Amino acid sequence: MPELSYWMNTPYDWILLFVCALLIGMSKTGIQGITLLTIPLMAINFGAKPSTGLILPMLCFSDLIAVIYYRRNAEWNYIWKLLPAAIAGFFLAIAVDKLIPADEFRRLMAVCIFIGLGVMLWMEWKKTESKLLSTWWYAPLFGLMGGFTTMIGNAAGPILAVYLLSMRLPKYSFVGTSAWFFLLVNYLKLPLQIFVWENISTTTLFLNTISIPFMIIGAIIGIYFVKKVPEKIYRNFIIIVTILSTVMLFV
């Protein structure tokens, strides 16, 4: 497999791949947000756009594990509100891909997420609900941002987290809704990554395949974490991880 030498030249490359697979598995089954730790590491090591093709099938496999386990916990009304705008975000990302640097868009998305976090934390402090949550554009805005950022760099986790946290979903509904949403989004992205950006190949799929044990171990850790952590602590944990992972978008 001649292309393998492009990806894997040192033991560090293999360690990085397997650690990222572990983190992706953990993220998809409950420890939300830590996927963003993998994105800059993979981008620095393998290149920004090539690394998205390496990461996406790993996300798809881990989404499948999460959906199998949390299949009865999704709140579908939120998914349907987000999904059409998320698909529009895919095509927006493709349209502007060569016009505007991805780094500038990631920073813009980070600012938007921080604004959303600010509104959500304000509501928590005041113990009230904002009229923003019931406006017609609130869910589509998050859907559009999510679709755009997931296409550009698989970085939609914090955006969805802010939206679902603002909806005050219990932890199992939070994880189940995230799992189903990202399963749909990531599998819809596959043809675009394969045929438009051409960054998924037999070599990247081979690397994904040998990473499966690490994704499964990570998924088990995530499931155990959600079971053991109380509801309020879990919510606060997700808020903290979302803030930290959003900061990573500035990297």
Rank of each mutant, 00 (worst) to 15 (best):
residue 160 L to T: 15
residue 55 I to Y: 01
residue 52 T to E: 11
residue 123 M to P: 09
residue 247 V to N: 01
residue 119 V to A: 05
residue 19 V to K: 04
residue 240 I to L: 13
residue 138 Y to W: 04
residue 206 F to H: 06
residue 67 V to F: 10
residue 146 G to Y: 12
residue 192 L to D: 10
residue 185 V to K: 03
residue 196 V to E: 05
residue 147 G to K: 10
residue 199 N to W: 11
residue 134 S to L: 01
residue 175 V to C: 04
residue 232 K to C: 06
residue 52 T to S: 12
residue 240 I to M: 12
residue 2 P to A: 14
residue 134 S to T: 05
residue 174 F to K: 04
residue 34 I to L: 05
residue 37 L to R: 11
residue 149 T to V: 04
residue 217 I to Q: 03
residue 182 F to K: 07
residue 46 F to A: 08
residue 46 F to D: 00
residue 129 E to P: 00
residue 62 S to K: 11
residue 47 G to V: 14
residue 28 K to S: 00
residue 50 P to S: 05
residue 91 F to Y: 09
residue 189 K to P: 05
residue 213 P to R: 06
residue 59 L to H: 09
residue 211 S to W: 08
residue 237 F to C: 13
residue 103 D to Q: 06
residue 139 A to G: 13
residue 42 M to P: 11
residue 160 L to K: 01
residue 214 F to D: 00
residue 178 S to D: 13
residue 223 I to R: 09
residue 146 G to M: 13
residue 128 T to W: 04
residue 44 I to V: 13
residue 41 L to A: 14
residue 82 L to Q: 00
residue 224 Y to V: 14
residue 72 R to H: 04
residue 121 L to P: 08
residue 169 L to C: 08
residue 55 I to G: 00
residue 138 Y to A: 01
residue 5 S to K: 14
residue 26 M to L: 07
residue 205 L to A: 03
residue 142 F to D: 04
residue 60 C to M: 09
residue 218 G to F: 09
residue 103 D to G: 09
residue 119 V to D: 05
residue 232 K to Q: 11
residue 213 P to F: 14
residue 101 P to Y: 08
residue 167 M to C: 10
residue 85 A to T: 03
residue 148 F to H: 03
residue 118 G to R: 03
residue 221 I to P: 01
residue 199 N to H: 07
residue 141 L to P: 14
residue 78 Y to K: 13
residue 106 R to D: 06
residue 141 L to F: 15
residue 166 S to E: 01
residue 65 I to S: 08
residue 94 I to C: 08
residue 62 S to M: 10
residue 184 L to N: 13
residue 82 L to F: 02
residue 101 P to D: 06
residue 102 A to C: 02
residue 233 I to E: 07
residue 37 L to T: 07
residue 47 G to N: 12
residue 54 L to R: 03
residue 39 I to F: 10
residue 168 R to E: 10
residue 102 A to E: 08
residue 60 C to P: 02
residue 63 D to W: 08
residue 31 I to F: 14
residue 209 T to E: 06
residue 246 T to A: 04
residue 166 S to Q: 11
residue 3 E to V: 08
residue 132 L to T: 04
residue 100 I to W: 00
residue 87 I to T: 13
residue 144 L to W: 06
residue 226 V to Y: 02
residue 2 P to M: 15
residue 54 L to P: 04
residue 225 F to T: 08
residue 15 I to A: 03
residue 152 I to R: 12
residue 91 F to W: 14
residue 56 L to K: 05
residue 209 T to L: 14
residue 162 V to T: 05
residue 67 V to W: 10
